[in-house]
Design a protein around this nucleic acid. Structure first.
Length: 965
RNA sequence: GCCGCGGUGGCGGAAUUGGUAGACGCACAGGACUCAAAAUCCUGCGAUGGCAACAUCAUGAGAGUUCGAGUCUCUCCCGCGGCACCA
């Protein structure tokens, strides 16, 4: 018998598939619908495929093969994200033109992909650095330009001194270049931007209807950063100028003790004459501007600022005059570039106020939500909290009042005092304690509950309705307890946290222990004139209304999202199709002149300016309008522009008239499944959605989200649990694994390692398991082949396993559709293990020793079909061995028989008090009465019941029975 | 700090609506075959006690709900990913 030789058969089938792509079902027509299965197109790096690629592409290959066999039209294309910095840097390093290195890398990638048996439709292959592709990238630029969505402005930009280029904010996070980790500096340059901020709301709300990982949706929401707040103006004393601030916490406005403007805020320049310490201010501003993002963000703890002397603003709510500071903890580009500072209720303001010794005024008191201990059936009881400061040692004591029927305080108030105020007064009268701060309006009656540490130990007391003099201690408590029959519970220090948590009292506790911090949550307003007693939420509404009435403020929505900077001063990208004419100024290149091709007469090494400036060929241009002397825009576009629309092009890759025809787009889009790395959670996916929304708005397409379903493959870690990296020398090369075990084993193993989306460490031993499995499959079918050749009508009793086969068909179907490839594979293993199991019958069996076969040939073949998407080569080979001339991938996916999925016999689990005590083999449709009889008659159960009485019996049909005693 | 995800044997990981915890695979141990080894096949494999039947404990920790919790609720601890002076 021939042994399984993956290297041999894999080559054979790869060659066949290349000659006949139809073996993959590519190009087949179907009326059952379409499935667009998309991989994020890779950047073809010189290193070739890595394990992560293999994982992701195997998954989409399985899905594609599966749906093709289900009869759907499947589009499963692949292409190359070839432009960009890494390619250019590599070219510089090797002194080879990037088009050459890229071409070579693409060759390697394609060879490796074919070597894995991926069923790509290469007839729609794309390359973003191909002029026939980037002509349409340029067309998109013009589309945006003509619709006012691309504009140029002088901007402070992130500049990487090493890469010699501008970086998008996204590529310079933390002030460090994403590519080379050099510190980014700030430069002022004329730059092209796409107006993605126009679509902020669409980009945000569109997320709700997508089948995407929650983390990705959350990251995009966070990135867009919607915030609803209030914008209002404050008058500057003795001036007509005003300072406009933005806040989400207008409810804290009575606690404003100063205001801050960002160094970039133009108001400073306007007030120059009034400012007494202008020189100092100017110096501070210059300094701040010179700081990089890194310095401005990394040194968070150390806030700096200077008071603007001679300037005071007026809080419109209190008419108080307050000082103004310039400080770089306020950002120039967000909101109005100025804020009201409320140190009592904002951590940043608090820190600043502490440092510069500014007043801190509390205007929000914490409150509690619902009492977690309240009886669900009765009315929900609220808890009120008071913070009591012990004047003796400046510690705080926390008291909770909650509505109860223990003891009623009379309600109602004197002279229109609120219920809370009335309750406060009453408790104060009752206890004689004067510093209570009531937090929440409470019910008709109240009682107090609080904790207090024991004088000399780490034990805390929990008092229920016991209000006492702080000077008193344990003795008094006991006395009080006796007198009032109140409850006091002592708590050990280690239990305090858990106790506090039951009461949602963390903040109060923090305040009690630490004394001083900014309370930043919502609460109840205090010391806020007519607004006192309102909740934060209500107060925001009311205060904003008042501002609107006074015409000094309004509701305002802000987004963190900033416009997309697309200019790059580099060579290896799509040139921006704009011409600068000496007469006409900025002129877009007419569409008929596209593509503007990259010249080859340049030195592409970076100089700080775009290399395209120096190309004679490139700059030899006349104005399209007047024919006058002109020069071309020499910047190229960010590669993310190329990747924002490539999924359209796959549907119609050769189209010379449009980026893709309307019919083809309608036929295939939106994408049904998009699979790729989680590193693209924000940038690429957001930009691609933006492009789709632009096309939708301009009437080119009738949908507004490109990717209906998105999944990320988890990264494959090295066996040491670290990321694979060249420098660590722990990289496993797929080529070597294929050489040793074969592509099918690698495919199978990567899918078997664990859930697709989890990060998984590579285990060099593990692949032996999947190789063994394929060996067994091979032997099993080889023997089967021999047997049926000798005796075509022979039976071997395999029909005992028909139920298992049907279960397997069901599970594999469900698991593939839910990306649970690991359990699908394990189910096929279970099936095979059963068919190969040594059993009594097999000794008598004339067929294949230990092996059992299904009586029907179709059933045998179903096993191969189930395996085929995972391990296509071996499936094709064995399929052929069974006498087929056509590809296995032209077969229909098997259906299971629902009637056969159910077991006739089950093991009924018998529990006593929920613990497993016995199992008995019974018919699967056993009735409750029968089951009860069997259960109570079980010897084991009897032992446990003894002479105890059975309280009740719970029966779960087809599963278990539980005897409760 | 905020947001999201996770924590189950020596390891990767299984476990429908709450219903037999540890499927499948790796590693390991014993056995068969062999002069021997490799390969292959069989058996075992969470911990503790017991010759055994079996019992007790066990899904990061602590509580809660339930006849019954890996699964639901609350809190804490740890890990990973994202965001981070966005007022």
């Amino acid at each position: 018998m021939e042994k399984y030789n993956p290297q041999k058969i894999e080559k054979k089938w790869q060659k066949k598939w290349e000659e006949k792509p139809s073996f993959h079902g590519i190009g087949e027509k179907s009326n059952k619908g379409k499935f667009y299965c998309l991989d994020m197109f890779p950047y073809p790096s010189g290193d070739g495929l890595h394990m992560g690629h293999v994982e992701s592409y195997t998954a989409t290959d399985i899905i594609s093969r599966y749906f093709r066999m289900k009869g759907l039209n499947v589009l499963h294309p692949q292409g190359w994200d070839a432009f960009g910095l890494p390619a250019e840097n590599y070219a510089i390093k090797t002194k080879t033109h990037p088009s050459i290195t890229t071409k070579k890398a693409i060759g390697t990638f394609k060879r490796q992909m074919d070597g894995m048996g991926f069923s790509y439709d290469w007839s729609s292959e794309l390359n973003s650095s191909d002029p026939e592709y980037y002509r349409w990238t340029q067309w998109f630029f013009l589309l945006l330009y003509k619709n006012g969505l691309a504009y140029k402005k002088k901007a402070k930009v992130n500049w990487c001194p090493k890469c010699q280029t501008v970086l998008a904010n996204e590529q310079a996070e933390g002030g460090i270049c994403e590519r080379c980790e050099t510190e980014v500096i700030q430069r002022d340059l004329e730059q092209w931007f796409f107006k993605i901020t126009d679509f902020a709301e669409d980009l945000l709300s569109g997320l709700d209807n997508l089948d995407w990982p929650g983390s990705t949706i959350a990251a995009q929401k966070n990135w867009i950063g919607k915030s609803e707040g209030t914008e209002f103006e404050m008058e500057i004393k003795d001036s007509d100028e005003k300072i406009k601030v933005y806040t989400t916490r207008i409810d804290t406005v009575f606690g404003m003790t100063y205001a801050v403007v960002a160094p970039e805020n133009p108001i400073i320049e306007k007030l120059k004459d009034k400012i007494k310490n202008y020189e100092k201010i100017e110096k501070y501003i210059t300094n701040a501007r010179r700081k990089t993002e890194l310095e401005r963000t990394a040194l968070q703890k150390d806030k700096t600022g200077v008071e603007i002397q001679g300037i005071k603003v007026i809080n419109p709510f209190t008419n108080e005059e307050i000082p103004v500071f310039v400080a770089d903890y306020v950002l120039g580009h967000y909101g109005t570039g100025a804020v009201m500072a409320v140190p009592a209720h904002d951590e940043r303001d608090f820190e600043f106020a502490k440092k510069y010794d500014l007043p801190i005024k509390e205007v929000i008191a914490p409150y509690l939500k619902d009492d977690p201990n309240a009886d669900k059936d009765t009315e929900k009881r609220n808890v009120a909290t008071a913070i009591v400061k012990n004047p003796k040692d400046n510690t705080y004591l926390c008291l909770n009042w909650k509505t109860t029927n223990w003891k009623s305080f009379p309600t109602g108030g004197i002279d229109g005092e609120s219920l809370a105020e009335a309750a406060k007064r009453e408790v104060e009268e009752e206890t004689g304690y004067k510093n209570l701060k009531f937090i929440k309006q409470i019910g008709n009656s109240v009682y107090a509950e609080f904790y207090r540490p024991h004088k000399d130990s780490n034990v805390f007391a929990h008092f229920k309705y016991l209000l006492f003099e702080l000077e008193n201690d344990e003795e008094a408590i006991v006395k009080e307890k006796e007198k009032n029959q109140h409850e006091a519970v002592w708590i050990k220090e280690k239990d305090v946290d858990s106790f506090i948590n039951v009461w949602n009292q963390k903040l109060i506790w923090k305040k009690y222990k630490e004394g001083n911090f900014a309370y930043c949550d919502d609460g109840i307003l205090i010391d806020s004139q007519g607004y006192s007693g309102l909740t934060s939420e209500k107060a925001r509404e009311k205060m904003t209304k008042w501002l609107e009435k006074e015409k000094i403020g309004k509701k305002k929505i802000n987004y963190k999202l900033r416009d997309w900077l697309v200019s790059r001063q580099r060579y290896w990208g799509a040139p921006i199709p704009i011409i600068y004419c000496e007469n006409c100024g900025e002129v877009p290149v007419p569409e008929k002149d596209l593509p503007i091709e990259l010249p080859d007469d340049v030195d592409f090494r970076p100089t700080g300016e775009s290399p395209l400036i120096y190309s004679k060929k490139f700059q030899d241009v006349r104005c399209p309008k007047c024919g006058g002397k002109s020069r071309r825009e020499s910047d190229t576009m960010d590669t993310f522009v190329c990747s924002s629309w490539y999924y359209f092009r796959y549907t119609d890759p050769k189209n010379k008239k449009e980026f893709a025809s309307k019919e083809q787009i309608k036929k295939w889009l939106p994408v049904n499944l998009y699979l790729g790395g989680a590193e693209h959670t924000v940038l690429h996916l957001l930009y691609a959605r933006f492009f789709t929304k632009v096309l939708n708005k301009l009437g080119h397409i009738d949908f507004n989200e490109p990717f209906l379903k998105l999944r990320h493959q988890g990264i494959i870690l090295a066996s040491d649990g670290n990321k694979m990296s060249k420098s660590k020398g722990n990289v496993v090369n797929p080529d070597e694994v294929v050489k040793e075990f074969g592509a099918d084993s690698l495919r199978l193993f990567e899918m078997f390692m664990g859930p697709l989306e989890d990060a998984k460490p590579w285990n060099s031993q593990g692949i032996i398991g999947t190789k063994r499995f394929l060996d067994k499959i091979w032997d099993y079918f080889s023997i089967y082949k021999e047997e049926i050749t000798n005796n075509p009508n022979i039976t071997s009793g395999g029909d005992r396993y028909v139920a298992l086969l049907n279960k397997t068909i069901k599970k594999v179907k469900e698991d593939i559709e839910n990306f649970r490839f690991n359990t699908a594979i394990s189910q096929i293993m279970i099936l095979l293990n059963n068919l190969r199991k040594f059993n009594e019958d097999s000794e008598k069996n004339e067929l294949g020793g230990n092996y059992t076969f299904f009586d029907k040939k179709e059933d045998m073949e179903k096993i191969l079909i189930l395996l085929s998407p995972f391990a296509p080569h071996i499936a094709e080979e064995l399929w052929e061995k069974l006498g087929h001339n056509e590809s296995i991938f032209k077969e229909k996916w098997p259906e299971y028989d629902p009637a056969l999925v159910k077991d006739e016999e089950i093991e009924l689990v018998i529990q006593v008090n929920g613990k497993l005590r016995d199992r008995i083999e019974v018919s699967s449709d056993i009735s409750e009465a029968e089951a009860k009889k069997i259960a109570t008659e079980s010897e084991k159960v009897k032992n446990f019941i003894g002479d105890k009485k059975i309280k009740k019996i719970i029966f779960v049909k087809g599963k278990l029975i539980n005897v409760v005693i």
